[in-house]
Amino acid sequence: MTAERGPRRALFLALGSLAAVTAAAVAAGRWLDIVAVSGRSMAPTLLAGDRLLVEAFSYRRRPPRAGEIILAADPRRPSRELVKRIGGVDPSSGSAELVGDAPDASTDSRSFGPVDLVDVRWRAAFRVWPPGRVGLVR
């Protein structure tokens, strides 16, 4: 019994501190955030009502890459933040094509053109809700 308790306590401690750090970061809202998804253009990857943990670390170190799911302001209505996948990156112009995983039900770069890479700050990392679909977003 005692032999088990040590590692288990360590695990709890580790998970607990990870949660605390996450909580602090989310509270700060600058590096990590929780967002709710609306709309179905990213189906089946993301569905309406999904909650995502988004992070703003990666793109301070490197530009977004094709295939990543990101947040970006809608060029036609900047107050609306879109969640889309990066279809392709053009380093020479510093822009990215945004696409939806459901192309027949998506308004994206095919309509509004490419977006500037510098405006892409947030990457979707993890789905935290609903419980049955918790996991990495890819």
């Binding site: 809202g29 709710a36 039900a105």
Partner: peptide, 18 residues
Amino acid sequence: SLLRPTRRVYAHCDIPCG
């Protein structure tokens, strides 16, 4: 409270069932 979203993001389509 940890999982409460702070904002809404849009997997947008102008006319979803066009």
